[in-house]
């Protein structure tokens, strides 16, 4: 099943390239308003038409990809930086106080959906992109802690870890030198999944006004602005949504593909 890997990888790379390209080139200037040319249909000049301010949709989508990808990636980084060490520590001290604290902390964070975290942060500090990253990052943390702990626990029972302990290595060194490299595959797959989840959550946050603020174009905000015009200009809502779906689908396929490619046992189960 290399099909998932290739298709998912291609879609993901395509969006990443479009987002990067938007820093140096877009078909049109996204800040240029042209009220006379508003709501234009697709043409050679404007590939995906223009919005209600006459801005080029294709350019807006390219720039919007930046925010989605940056927020989701940063949130994955946040979740891994906090969750993976906590998971490793909990597994190393299995059944101990640290393990208990980490697991109860996980339960606590799981009780707060990312949107509710974002609501809490926004109520106190006001809406911004940073709050969106923080909210999704906090949401990601227990996911990574749990995956790390679960995988690390099964490794701790293996003989080569016992050998490392006999050789006099400490818990931290074993975690870093032997456990972490062996669960890296799993973490890469989980990171891909959380990346996809992050894209959807970010779009939702921007849609309700808790994410990227005007004038930064983002897919979620484009959807929010298009809502009142959907009866006469449905493409304004169609394209940003399709961008989200395609990007998330690509990442999910990539995650499935990576899991199959990195773990030969999965292929046997699937067949």
């Amino acid at each position: 099943m290399r099909r998932n890997l290739v298709l998912g990888g291609t879609l993901t790379a395509l969006f990443a390239l479009l987002a990067l390209l938007s820093f140096v080139w877009t078909p049109h200037d996204v800040t240029a308003l042209d009220i006379g040319g508003k709501l234009a249909p697709s043409s050679a000049e404007h590939w995906l038409g223009t919005d209600h301010f006459g801005r080029d949709m294709a350019s807006m989508l390219m720039v919007g990809a930046r925010i989605s990808i940056a927020v989701a990636l940063a949130a994955v980084g946040f979740g891994m930086a906090l969750g993976v060490p906590l998971g490793l520590l909990a597994a190393a001290r299995r059944g101990g106080l640290v393990d208990e604290v980490v697991m109860r902390g996980n339960d606590l964070v799981f009780a707060f959906p990312s949107l509710v975290i974002a609501i809490l942060i926004t109520a106190v500090f006001g809406p911004s992109v940073w709050n969106a990253i923080l909210a999704i990052g906090i949401f990601n943390t227990p996911v990574f802690a749990r995956v790390t702990r679960g995988a690390a626990l099964s490794l701790w029972t293996l003989d080569y870890i016992l050998a490392a302990r006999v050789a006099g290595k400490g818990m931290l060194r074993i975690s870093a030198e032997h456990i972490l490299p062996n669960i890296a595959n799993l973490l890469v797959v989980q990171a891909t999944i959380q990346f996809a989840v992050g894209i959807i959550i970010e779009a939702g946050l921007s849609y309700v006004g808790l994410g990227a603020q005007p004038p930064t174009p983002s897919w979620g905000r484009m959807l929010a602005e298009s809502q009142t015009m959907i009866s006469f200009a449905p493409t304004l809502a169609l394209y940003p949504g399709l961008a989200i779906v395609t990007m998330v689908l690509g990442l999910n396929l990539l995650g499935d593909g990576l899991r199959d490619a990195l773990d030969p046992r999965m292929q046997r189960v699937r067949a």
Partner: peptide, 22 residues
């Protein structure tokens, strides 16, 4: 179902409104 997971519900909702309500 793979597609269903990738679709943001508020976007899907907007098109449900367009088709079944408007």
């Amino acid at each position: 179902t793979q597609l269903g997971i990738a679709v943001p519900n508020f976007w899907f909702a907007m098109f449900l409104v367009l088709i079944f309500a408007i």
